[in-house]
Design a protein around this nucleic acid. Structure first.
Lengths: 341, 341
DNA sequence: TTGAAAGCGGTACCAC
DNA sequence: GTGGTACCGCTTTCAA
């Protein structure tokens, strides 16, 4: 049993110098004679000495730790890229992430916040599993906090969200570019749900149509519930139309999955007979559907990254620009489900 | 600007007591007069005082932090439940998780380990994204480490992995129970790949057959590559047999996805004409396939939980039982893709 | 260029 | 019961 870890004074003693000097070597302070530095350096390596972060933190009041609170990562696995992006950005800055999943439980979320404050995190990233408005306790204002994929009514925190409108517009434009004019759209929730995704994506769709001077045809517009079943049923409805669409924009990859089923059932080929675009770029679905689904990607990774960078920017340049509501564009991912009309 | 945080001596001063007494109150030490305790308690609440974890850690040498290193979570989103399980277990014990994704990069993995040691984590969970043998640097032995979904050749660490054999057996038994005797199996990798999953699942399949006295028919056994396309092709092959199977056990949900496509193309109904079982229980697939896929679940959540509990057990009861190689069973998830023959 | 010493904010032992 | 104080391991003046 190593009864005690090696400390800075152990090093100092065996090097025959004061702890201060060792500390200077540790921190690359130029005010150390080259010869002394080398001698100390060597001892440090020999003993495999590692300074204690805890002691350092206590003294410098810097923990180099950020808190990452997710409302419920487990529910939407693909949002895990938010963590990945956040972590990569943090890593580059020498920071680490303390991650807790609030499990859709407000008490747990606040408890997590509290324990993070106790642990002196230098900032907090709060991430929602999908684009929505959230209601955070005032306590969050006591720590620099950045929101991901969500926002508060009063915009009290900087936040980053996907550009749903641009995403919807892009998907539609891709379809139009291939000559489609009758484009069905199945949105992923009732319009009155208040969620930004269905509203925004539909808006983008309309913008694209308008730009191409294609009139909006209400009969081509259906409200689903984001699931495969609803994609299936809505597609069936759409194709039953007197003048059915030649392309369908499903505002969710999952709904696109249902659309595939419906089209296959109707013996319609994708993309030869009908083109399909999804939204979300859920790898497990989009990549393994046959044919692979062309879709719009949510910038999870980038949002995570942006959040951390914004948090750390503030660290150097004064305060967080609270009013900053950042919108990140959703790139189109070309696969094989869209063909020319 | 609050120039300085409230410290224990601030509290002591305004309460007119020594810091020791305040500390006792903070730690629920019974040796405090009730009256004094209340007075101090009140002040603490009024000022909103929170003891510094860092200072505490330095003194007690306990950080209450565990390190979680993933080889690459982002690649297999559904494995995120490992984190969830680990975090839930940690939370119950008042511990937090420092999470880093090594991004399939050994250097980064070792760097993560190093920084975690510096930060005095009380233990490390190393999680692989899928069941495999891993090669860890010796340095890991300097910290209590538990492995998830992987193991080292020398079994130098306690580890927890899914029971592939039992999983394969269970899936097959379910099929047999419904009267199926010609059961095709498409494994998710070449047998010689050395991965435990294909080997184990096939073994379980054979065990189930044997128990039911159904001879193993080599022509019903195909090696895929875990993807949808390969599931599609293998299914086509299987159904082309003179004496085709009435049920297919796809060792991967993704392959089952391909199998669905193939069967639909052949105008065979699931499960009326052919039953299908998957493996992995990937929510996005299994739940949204039509009909929903009956499959075997990987105990990600439980593995994460087990790892943390094992790590913390050691904390109390001496050393880690290194030789402990724990196998967790894979429960069958009944949905709608299996019918009676 | 270097050493001594004063903290950082707590805990724990010891004496009263 | 309670206060005083050494100490956890490091950084940072301040002098020398």
């Amino acid at each position: 049993m190593d009864s005690r870890r090696t400390t800075i004074s152990d090093i100092a003693r065996t090097a025959g110098v004061g702890v201060g000097t060792v500390s200077r070597v540790l921190n690359d302070d130029p005010n150390v004679k080259e010869q002394t530095r080398e001698r100390i350096q060597k001892i440090i390596e020999e003993v495999g000495y590692q300074p204690s972060f805890t002691a350092r933190s206590l003294r410098t009041q810097k923990t180099h730790v950020l808190g990452f609170i997710a409302d419920a990562v487990a529910t939407t696995p693909y949002a895990v890229n938010v963590i990945k992006g956040a972590q990569d950005a943090a890593w580059e800055h020498g920071k680490l992430l303390l991650v807790v999943d609030a499990d859709n439980n407000d008490e747990r979320r606040d408890a997590a916040l509290e324990t993070m404050i106790e642990r002196n995190v230098e900032g907090i990233i709060y991430a929602a599993m999908f684009h929505q408005e959230v209601n955070l306790s005032k306590r969050f204002r006591d720590v620099p906090t950045v929101l991901v994929d969500c926002f508060t009514k009063d915009n009290a925190f900087p936040s980053v969200v996907p550009d749903e409108v641009q995403g919807g517009r892009t998907a539609t434009e891709q379809l139009i570019k291939k000559g489609h004019e009758r484009i069905g759209i199945i949105i992923n929730d009732k319009l009155n749900s208040g969620y930004p995704a269905p509203t925004g994506r539909l808006k983008g769709y309309k913008q694209a149509l308008k730009k191409a001077r294609i009139p909006f045809d209400k009969s081509l517009f259906l409200e689903g519930d984001s699931n495969a079943t609803s994609g299936y049923e809505c597609t069936l409805k759409l194709m039953k139309l007197k003048n059915p669409p030649t392309a369908i924009f499903c505002c969710t990859d999952r709904m696109a999955m249902g659309a595939y089923d419906a089209l296959k059932k109707l013996k319609l080929r994708i993309p030869e007979d009908v083109s399909v675009s999804g939204f979300d770029n859920q790898d497990v679905i989009a990549n393994y559907l046959s044919p692979p689904l062309s879709t719009v990607a949510l910038p999870h990774y980038e949002m995570g990254k942006w959040a951390v960078n914004t948090l750390l920017l503030k660290e150097n340049s004064g305060n967080l620009d609270v009013k900053q509501q950042h919108v990140l564009s959703c790139p189109f991912v070309q696969r094989a489900s869209i063909g020319s009309k």
